[in-house]
Amino acid sequence: MAAKIIAKEVRKIYDTPQGEVIALQHFDLEVEEGEFVCIVGPSGCGKSTFLRILAGLEDQTAGQVTIIPGKEPGKPLNNVVFQEYAIFPWKTVIDNVAFGLEMHGMPKQKRLQIARRWLERVGLGRFAQYYPHQISGGMKQRVSIARALANDPEVLLMDEPLGALDAQTRAVLQEELLRIWEETRKTVVYITHSIEEAVLLGDRVFLMTAHPGVNKATFDVDIPRPRTLATQSSREFRQLTLAIWELLKDEVMRAMEAQR
């Protein structure tokens, strides 16, 4: 397997009126092609910052971040599923999903056809002509996921996509993500604050330290696929989440101390 994402010694310093904020320090990460990697860490440790750097939406202060292009020319390198959905309120559901394709100049008929197929796959076929304010939060996040998948990027970057949803909706979407990922096998970097979610979805779990973010430990998730929600009741699942929690606990404590 070839490496798809390489991040070495990444550092990010925000220059604010209150002084410099070190968001990331000595951050290393390597993701292989077709791998599903989860990043877990206490709030404010720089997870979103790293993802934005990876997506090219922000520049790192120092270090190297690369996504290695695939063989297909013209394929977008990465697309982000944002923490805040970020689907456009002024576009219908289907136009939102077709957005990336439209930006690349795909003709209308073709892009709507692809968008419709992805809407069907996330169970929103009936809502194609709705506007975002007419659908629920869970549906909005599905639109956001469909928008990224329809654009078919080399790498999918997801920033706590299910963080704002209620427990039931989250469970349903987790299963959907598992199913879709097992069909597409895309390279995914997935940020979450839930250890259970990370272990359920990921091939590997990266643990980040509190402020400034450094990667503290990596766990391989050897639970066989296909996984379902029932996987969560297996013994190896519980052992792994517990082990991660033991390490994360200190960091959360430290983060809370620091915020006081």
Binding site: A55, N78, V80, I87, G100, M103
Partner: peptide, 8 residues
């Protein structure tokens, strides 16, 4: 950011 990320 979303628009830029999707290649606008």
């Amino acid at each position: 950011q979303a628009a830029r990320n999707y290649g606008a």
